[in-house]
Simulated assay, not measured.
Amino acid sequence: AYEYLKRFTEVKDDILGLEMGQKIADAQSQYDFKKKEQELETYRAKNEELTRLNRHLQELNREKNEFLSMATHDLKNPLTSILLMIETWIEFGVDITKNEALQSLKWLRNMIVDMLNIVINILDVNAIESGELNLYFQQFDLCYRLEALLDNYQQMASAKQLHLQATLPDQKVMVYADPSATTQILDNLVSNAIKYSPIQRNIYIRLIDGEKTVRLEVQDEGQGLSETDLEKLFHKFSRLSARPTGGEHSTGLGLAIVKKLVDAMFGTVYAVSDGKDKGATFIVELPKTPVAEESP
């Protein structure tokens, strides 16, 4: 009986050992499988991140190429014209009258202003995107600033026989935003309306004091916007179907700057148009009081 019990115990231990070994092997297999799954998932995540970064780099490269193309074209033309003007002065300077010289200087000044605006717009976009733009929020009268800006643009509008029709409240219209950035937004929208309007048209500027926001509308009777235009309206370096009507210059950055500034001040901006040659209306809404998302 003792020998039988001993043999039974040995056989049982062998069986249990085999079962335990199989369990350990199965557990090791499951561990290895899960580990490979985790490694594969990590690989997939890293691959997706690399794909995303690659797309981002391609987009940055595309923007860089567009910028170089724009800068080359928009800076080369006025620089060439300035060089030709200077060479003309050198060759025929003694025969130029005082009035002709004055007109030439005014023309040169305009060329230089155009080039300076290109550089300023590029720097503005870079400052906004790099987070280096400092906004100083405060409450101020938007109506007063808009009236002053429209006064400054009367001469430019008159040169194209355009009529600035402003509908403004009689009382102050307070907004909570950065005054300089807001003025830049107003300047872009009004100057664009003048730039892209044919002669002898109207430009309507409306300021509406709402409950929580102030709404600005700039409506022109110009070339309008196609569906394609509306899709890329606020993108950098966008070239829309409309063209300046008086030989004015356009960098393709103005509306992109407007969009970024409005977003930074917790406002909204968009445009509506019934199509080509049916004019367009640009609408900006800014808050009247501090917004919760504003950084301290």
Rank of each mutant, 00 (worst) to 15 (best):
T51Y: 14
Q38S: 11
E49T: 08
R55S: 14
S29T: 05
L57N: 03
H56D: 13
L50A: 10
L40V: 09
L60K: 08
K46F: 10
E39S: 03
Q38D: 11
T51L: 15
R52P: 00
N54E: 11
H56I: 11
K46H: 13
T42V: 04
N54G: 09
R55V: 11
L57I: 04
L53V: 00
E48A: 10
E39C: 01
E39D: 11
Y31T: 05
K46W: 09
E41S: 11
E59V: 01
N47R: 12
E49R: 10
L53P: 02
Q58I: 12
N54T: 12
R55E: 15
E59M: 03
R52Q: 05
K34E: 09
Q58L: 14
L57E: 04
K34R: 08
Y31N: 01
A45P: 01
E49D: 09
L50C: 02
H56F: 12
L53E: 01
L60V: 05
A27I: 07
E37T: 00
K34M: 07
A45T: 07
E37A: 02
Y31R: 02
Q38R: 12
E59T: 00
T42C: 09
R52M: 03
Q28V: 05
S29K: 05
Q58S: 12
K35W: 05
E39H: 04
T51D: 15
E39P: 01
E49H: 07
E39A: 07
A27V: 06
A45C: 01
A27E: 09
H56P: 03
R52F: 06
L40H: 12
R44G: 01
N47C: 12
D26W: 10
T51P: 09
Q30H: 04
F33S: 14
L53I: 00
N54M: 08
A45W: 00
D26R: 13
T51M: 15
E37C: 00
L60Q: 10
Q28D: 05
E41Q: 12
K35R: 08
L60D: 07
K35S: 09
S29P: 02
L40W: 11
Q28I: 06
L50H: 04
Q58P: 05
Q58E: 14
D26M: 10
T42S: 15
Q38C: 08
T51E: 15
L50G: 01
F33D: 15
D26C: 05
E59A: 07
T51F: 14
E37G: 00
N47L: 14
Y31G: 02
Y31W: 02
K34V: 03
A45R: 06
E41A: 13
K34W: 07
D32T: 01
E49K: 11
K34A: 03
H56N: 11
Q38G: 06
Q30N: 05
A27S: 10
T51A: 15
N47W: 11
L50W: 05
E48V: 06
L53D: 02
L57S: 04
K36N: 00
K46I: 07
T51K: 15
Q58A: 15
D26G: 10
D32V: 01
Q28N: 07
E49L: 13
T51N: 14
A27M: 10
L50P: 00
A27C: 03
Y31I: 06
Y43R: 12
N54F: 08
T42W: 09
D32N: 05
L40Q: 13
L60I: 03
K35H: 06
D32K: 02
Q58K: 14
